[in-house]
Design a protein around this nucleic acid. Structure first.
Length: 425
DNA sequence: CTAGCCTTGAGT
DNA sequence: ACTCAAGGCTAG
């Protein structure tokens, strides 16, 4: 009886189960038995710790958390009933508090977000189409093409700057907890989205374009586009040479990369190569068919397993790609930013000015966050953001595992560039 | 803004 | 399967 915290479900519910019932609809029965303690209107039950009607409930939800309450035009003691309740918000709110309504029970921004995510996830799990009243704008938030419309006067982006760490078990991130964000379940409310600054948009387009023109495309050596060509690990490594060239092309286009000293450039590149390749590979993984897309057809993972013998490694790799794909949602901008975050890794081998690298990396981490906020709303961005960063750190161990294996290649059969870049000679 | 109606996850 | 009590949506 005295639990003040939780909404005491079932408290005085059973008062009139018996008599009123008959064969009338239930809600009708209940409706007639409870009375709003604020205004006397019919009540359905408890709202924010007091029995109130729907309107007082909504009123309280709208007003209780406001910092500035409207003032009473009279003596702060207006009587509130079903007729007068809307005349004086001040006294109505005061009465709400007086009869015991608790503003603590109004979900805060974060709780609301969690709740909505739960709903969203259930919807997609049940395969149920979300209730759509109408499908309005379908603006592509992501190519900054035009001068964005003039009517966007939303300055008060109430950004929470909430720090990243949601509940997450370490190890490998559990992507099953991430909802499949699709267009229909995204909030319609414009204020739920960040508007990227002009500079951010420029940065994003440039980097996405660069990515698409380099790493984003197929780059299979014709020699290696058929299953029969994969006989051993060397073949796999050599096949990657084309990709490495593209990677180099990609990073050279980056202003931030060019700003580094020659030595730092080499260090960054060398320490990220493997990770970058693994990251990029997710683009070409076909989850359904468990294979790798090439211009000439699918190469199944089992072929590669046979070629290398490293079954667990391939399993880890494909699992990684599967979850990464879910997080990037086929969005190359995200992959491109991740690629850069991986590139500017302050932990890398023989980096001379780590802080500078870290600063650059920060810039792109922030860009990633902002992009997500603009693309899938503040509501979903945090889950995705944290999981994506988790993916970046998982890359480290995945890359290390691959590196160990690489030590076993037959150096004489490997292309010079690959030897160089992988430090294999 | 209001207030009614609706959808929901959790709890029984 | 039902009830409760949150939030969402939206005519008016």
């Amino acid at each position: 009886m005295e639990d003040l915290r939780l909404p005491s479900v079932g408290d005085n519910v059973k008062g009139g189960m018996g008599e009123g019932g008959m064969s009338l609809k239930k809600y009708k029965r209940v409706k007639e038995e409870k009375i709003c303690l604020v205004c006397g209107d019919n009540a359905l039950g408890y709202n924010f710790n007091a029995i109130t009607c729907e309107s007082c409930k909504a009123f309280f939800r709208r007003n209780a958390l406001k910092q500035e309450h409207p003032k009473c035009l009279f003596q702060n003691n207006c009587s509130i009933d079903i007729r007068t309740r809307r005349f004086c918000p001040h006294c109505r709110l005061k009465k709400c508090f007086d009869i015991g309504m608790k503003k603590e029970m109004i979900l805060d921004e974060n709780e609301r977000k969690v709740r909505m995510q739960k709903v969203a996830m259930n919807r997609q799990k049940r395969g149920k189409a979300p209730i759509i009243k109408e499908e309005p704008q379908d603006v592509d938030m992501f190519m900054p093409d035009t001068q964005s419309m003039p009517g966007m006067m939303m300055d008060h982006t109430e950004d929470r700057f909430s720090i990243v760490a949601p509940d997450m078990s370490y190890g490998s991130s559990d992507v099953s907890l991430v909802p499949d964000v699709d267009k229909v379940m995204l909030p319609k409310d414009r204020s739920m989205y960040r508007t990227l600054t002009h500079d951010e948009q420029i940065m994003l387009t440039e980097l996405t374009t660069s990515f698409n023109e380099t790493l984003g495309g197929y780059s299979f050596d014709p020699k290696y586009n058929s299953e029969t060509n994969y006989k051993c690990l060397d073949d796999l490594v050599n096949n990657s040479e084309v990709v490495v060239r593209r990677l180099i092309k990609f990073v050279k286009r980056l202003e931030d990369f060019r700003s580094l000293s020659q030595e730092n450039q080499v260090s960054c590149l060398k320490s990220c190569v493997l990770n970058a390749l693994l990251l990029r590979s997710s683009l070409f993984y076909d989850v359904e068919n468990d294979g790798w897309k090439t211009p000439t057809g699918l190469i199944s993972t089992s072929t590669l397993k046979k070629a290398t013998g490293y079954h667990e490694l391939h399993d880890a790799h494909t699992a990684y790609c599967t979850s990464l794909k879910k997080l990037t949602r086929e969005n190359n901008s995200i992959l491109a930013i991740l690629q850069i975050i991986v590139l500017f890794n302050p932990e890398g081998q023989s980096i001379e000015n780590r802080q500078k690298i870290a600063d650059i990396q920060d810039k792109y981490i922030l860009l990633l966050k902002h992009f997500l906020e603009s693309d899938i709303s503040f509501m979903f961005s945090q889950v995705f953001f944290s999981h994506l960063l988790q993916k970046v750190s998982e890359l480290r161990s995945l890359g290390d595992d691959h590196a160990k294996i690489l030590l076993q290649v037959n150096a004489s059969q490997i292309e010079p560039l690959m030897l160089e870049v992988l430090n294999l000679h």
